[in-house]
Design a protein around this nucleic acid. Structure first.
Lengths: 236, 236
DNA sequence: CCTCTTTATCGTCGTGGTGACGATAACCGA
DNA sequence: TCGGTTATCGTCACCACGACGATAAAGAGG
């Protein structure tokens, strides 16, 4: 049996481990992702996903929450956060060997983020813009964003995921707009209303209605306690 | 800007990165997972999932494939391999800080594995046995196995995943048995036959039939080129 | 007050997927 | 030939769904 020093030098090649965040929200009727402008090399002054190194004493989820709070200045009670996937191609970071654990975060409309310590700027960017130009984002972040978006699209089908984009109280129309924007397709309002109100445990009526914005007032709902959607909301 | 040495010492806390494999197969009418008996501390002589350290020059998928080949001695053309999730609790390995990237592998019936370099024994163990006793597996491998099993169950619903458990040519009954064993529930043979033959691109008839084993010969199929199942095969 | 517009909500109808289950086909061994 | 076993096809009722019409409840403008 070798001693500890040999372990670290020989048997356990050292890696850096980071978390990267695909933070999605809906602003001004568009699906947006959080991007930050890097202040350090490599990819200095390029846009990238929020993220940072995992600290020695914290777990992965914990690191993701911390980075999210740092980059958005946000109480995360209302933010859904889940692990997405890990990326560790040997050449994905020119400095050294880095494995990143990507997380997917969904949030209701948030204030404009402030630049943090590692970033010179931060903003919400429509994902449509980001996807058109793969080289727009640093590292392999375009791939991570693509994977996160696909995960979000899939999860809208069989989880109450979409409610994470909404404020605590919302209307059926707001929820429908979430589906339309994430899926990128129009949905019939009448069939959607029937389906979504029929799923057990998805919506809890508050009894209140919205003040009219030109049409009939809509009933307000809160998120129900369902964790899976039965039946699921399937894309065409 | 700091120099490179400072980077590694301060800004980039060193982690070890491993891959762990949830390898599932069906043997003797049971769903089994590959477990190895550890030959080294910690958890010496305890059962664990196959896995090992990622090498400096290889990617994560590459490392998973290598470990799979080392532990099972297996040409992996017929094995489905996909990333499952990453686990990095600070205390999950008593030696040092380790982040593991777990992979899920599905294989048709394989020969009994041979013990590799790091293992004193390797075997196929029915998952029912493994799940009854959470402390049976080393590290957090019971959790990883549970997550892998749930992933497999879910993916049977909307992907041709189940065919990965079958030999190149198989019958509808064999495929049904896969679903029954993974889901742990009986399925009506007639409805299953109707559904599975109706899914576009799932099954490609070979034209041959099995020699009878006491009943009417069954038609043989190969895996089709479908990547998603439409409509999906839903659990009750 | 009345009408038009807008949005929300409810109904209807035909189609297709599904579970429950009966019926038939094709092999084996006795 | 007969019974046992497995594979495959059919039937029927039910429900979810897409397409789309109809109605309800607000504001705007006359």
């Amino acid at each position: 049996m070798t001693v500890m020093a040999d372990y670290q030098a020989a048997d356990y090649p050292p890696f850096a481990v980071t978390v990267d965040l695909v933070v999605l929200t809906i602003r001004e009727d568009e699906l947006c992702a959080l991007v930050i402008k890097r202040g350090e090399a490599p990819y200095r002054n390029r846009w990238a996903l929020a993220g940072g190194f995992v600290r020695p004493s914290e777990g992965l989820d914990e690191a993701a929450r911390r980075e999210l709070a740092e980059e958005t200045g946000l109480t995360l009670d209302s933010v859904h956060l889940e692990q997405l996937a890990s990326y560790g191609a040997p050449d994905r970071d020119p400095r050294m060997r880095v494995v990143t654990v990507a997380y997917l975060a969904l949030a209701p409309d948030l204030p404009v983020p402030l630049a943090g310590t590692d970033a010179v700027a931060a903003k919400w960017e429509p994902v449509a813009q980001l996807l058109t130009e793969p080289a727009h984002l640093a590292f392999d972040h375009h791939r991570i964003l693509t994977d996160g978006l696909e995960r979000a699209r899939a999860k809208l089908e069989y989880t109450p995921f979409a409610t994470a984009f909404c404020p605590p109280e919302f209307t059926v129309a707001q929820l429908r707009r979430v589906y339309e924007l994430v899926w990128g397709q129009r949905i019939d309002p009448r069939n959607f209303h029937r389906k979504v109100t029929g799923v057990n445990g998805l919506l809890a009526p508050t009894g209140d209605t919205t003040g009219g914005d030109g049409g009939r007032p809509a009933a307000l709902f809160r998120r129900g306690d369902a964790t899976v959607l039965r039946p699921p909301m399937l894309r065409g």
